[in-house]
Computed example of a mutant assay.
Amino acid sequence: MIEGGSGTTVSYTDTARARLVMAYEACELADLARAFVPIGEHELNLDGTSRSPGTVLADAARVVAAAQRFFEAAAVFERMGGADWQVIGDVLEVSARTAQLRFAMAEAAFRELLSPDRCPAAGEAGRLRAYMAREPLEVALDLDDWVLRHEDGDSDLGTTPVSGGLVRRGPRRPA
């Protein structure tokens, strides 16, 4: 939440928060995948074999896990934006029931994060997701910086490529 000029508190919509979580997961996925592009000077033996067997596969598994988190975050964003299970299923070419079975737990976990009296889930990932859902402006500003550091000629992004697009709820008086 941020303070408005008149002493009112403005917060982001739940859909905007879900989109922010998806943006964060995309950032994490991009960083993990990009690490595979350079070939380290000491990564290969002279015969072209790996100096650390299993390391690349373990790193690739982390990329797949990050892609899975991004995929789930995208489904949650669609649901928070009003898409029903039929729409999700149609996009994925599965039944509405299959889509619901696949993503309902991720949606429920996100909705729990939005609860003001909910304690963060155990583990670093749970605390991070709770932080993203509860402190969206801080996360959005960090992602603004990330996008601007990584822009590839996209000069029309402006100075707030993430935070500028988040939708806020109307002003509310503090309790």
Rank of each mutant, 00 (worst) to 15 (best):
Tyr12Ala: 04
Tyr12Gly: 01
Tyr12Leu: 15
Thr13Cys: 03
Thr13Val: 06
Thr13Tyr: 06
Asp14Gly: 13
Asp14Ala: 13
Thr15Glu: 15
Ala16Asp: 06
Ala16Val: 06
Ala16Asn: 04
Ala16His: 08
Arg17Thr: 04
Arg17Ile: 07
Ala18Lys: 06
Arg19Thr: 08
Val21Arg: 11
Met22Cys: 13
Met22Asp: 04
Met22Tyr: 12
Ala23Asp: 13
Ala23Pro: 01
Tyr24Ser: 12
Tyr24Arg: 14
Glu25Ser: 08
Glu25Tyr: 07
Glu25Gly: 03
Ala26Ser: 14
Ala26Glu: 11
Ala26Met: 14
Cys27Phe: 14
Cys27Arg: 15
Cys27Ile: 07
Glu28Asp: 11
Glu28Ala: 15
Leu29Thr: 15
Ala30Gln: 12
Asp31Trp: 10
Asp31His: 09
Leu32His: 10
Ala33Glu: 08
Ala33Met: 07
Ala33Val: 11
Arg34Met: 08
Arg34Tyr: 12
Arg34Thr: 10
Arg34Ser: 13
Ala35Asp: 10
Ala35Phe: 05
Phe36Val: 03
Phe36Ser: 08
Phe36Glu: 10
Val37Ile: 10
Val37Ser: 06
Val37Ala: 10
Val37Cys: 02
Val37Asp: 04
Pro38Met: 02
Pro38His: 05
Ile39Trp: 01
Ile39Pro: 00
Gly40Arg: 00
Glu41Phe: 01
Glu41Asp: 05
Glu41Cys: 00
His42Lys: 03
Leu44Gln: 01
